[in-house]
């Protein structure tokens, strides 16, 4: 007999049993509750929502807010329940995205009919594409040069920090803290507009490269530090006990072990760097955003701006994916 009791007990706690015996379930997961609230929500959508167009009155805004929260809460109840079948959850997910899209379509106050004509007016761009591509070239050039320089700086600073001299570390930490703290825009603007008074002047592209390299050098050095810290100190001890000099130890033991750790975050730095080249439009570097804004003014159309955004996406999304992939792979290896 004990056998049977055990099996019944098991059956009694199964999801199926609980669903067929609503008394055992928390009331928010009760099928009648869920069905009832769904019907209520549909009625709400049909009869209580305000008229289309951006809501002006506070009451309308509140109304929309309440409806949104209710829809989210209801779908969360289904989606969070691991026992629901996949197909049901997927339908609810589609429904959720659809309702959200519908709400935005109806109540954002946008003139959707004008969308294509304004944002995707490619005809107007004809003959000016080369300007955007020129801008992209400058963006990529600045990005690559600055990445290279900042990795050099980062490696140098990271290696110097392993010397463990307090004085040296004081200076290096000051460098890292200052340049990690200062916004890139401010750095560029100060280099471009203030330094010339000191007898140091760069062109706009050089300003961008200098600011990005110095600024991201600080970030890169942090990556290198993390890479070196990941090495067990016994490794260094063993290397020194074998008679390897400090530099040999760095070259043959520490760097080979640090670099796999550092590479993914360096890819991340390249991505951020490419994005931050857009900031260079503040100091009139002829990069992509700057070109797009010029075209926006001369053509009196937002299409170039949208185009530039799309170009950034096309260039940067694959790189972000690559960075993620590298990071993933590294984590697996370790």
């Amino acid at each position: 007999m004990p056998m049977t009791t055990a099996t019944t007990a098991k059956a009694n706690t199964s999801a199926k049993f609980m669903r067929s015996h609503p008394a055992w379930m928390h009331w928010v997961r009760h099928p009648y509750f869920l069905r009832g609230t769904l019907v209520a929500l549909i009625l709400y959508a049909l009869f209580l929502l305000p008229a289309p167009g951006a809501p002006a009155a506070l009451a309308d805004k509140l109304n929309l807010g309440v409806f949104t929260v209710l829809v989210l809460a209801w779908s969360a109840l289904i989606l969070a329940d691991g026992d629901r079948p996949d197909w049901l959850q997927s339908i609810v997910a589609f429904g959720l995205v659809g309702v959200m899209g519908w709400l935005f379509y109806r109540y954002s106050g946008a003139h959707w009919d004008k969308l294509a004509a304004a944002f995707f007016d490619w005809g107007r761009l004809s003959g000016s594409w080369w300007l955007l591509l020129d801008g992209l070239k400058v963006t990529l050039l600045i990005g690559l040069i600055s990445t290279f320089l900042s990795v050099l700086i980062g490696a140098a600073v990271g290696i110097l920090r392993t010397l463990g001299s307090p004085t040296l570390n004081l200076f290096l930490t000051a460098y890292i803290d200052i340049f990690r703290s200062i916004p890139m825009a401010v750095l560029m603007v100060v280099i471009f507009f203030a330094l010339p008074y000191m007898g140091i002047s760069f062109g706009s592209i050089a300003t961008t490269v200098v600011a990005l390299s110095i600024g991201y050098g600080a970030y890169a050095s942090e990556s290198f530090r993390a890479g070196f810290e990941a090495i067990h100190y016994g490794q260094i001890e063993a290397a020194r006990a074998l008679g390897l000099s400090r530099w040999q130890c760095m070259r043959m033991i520490m760097l080979p072990q640090a670099i796999p750790v550092v590479i993914p975050s360096l890819t991340g730095i390249l991505v951020s760097m490419l994005k931050d080249t857009a900031v260079a439009s503040l100091v009139a570097s002829p990069e992509l955003l700057k070109r797009a804004r010029e075209l926006y003014t001369s053509k009196a159309s937002p299409t170039p701006l949208v185009a530039s955004a799309l170009i950034y996406l096309v260039v940067i999304i694959p790189l972000t994916r690559l960075a993620n992939l590298l990071e993933h792979r590294m984590k697996k290896v370790r």
């Binding site: 067990h232 016994g234 490794q235 001890e237 063993a238 290397a239 006990a241 033991i253 072990q257």
Partner: peptide
């Protein structure tokens, strides 16, 4: 030569 408790192979 030195041999450590935790091997410390590279």
């Amino acid at each position: 030569g030195m041999v450590f408790q935790s091997f410390n192979l590279f």
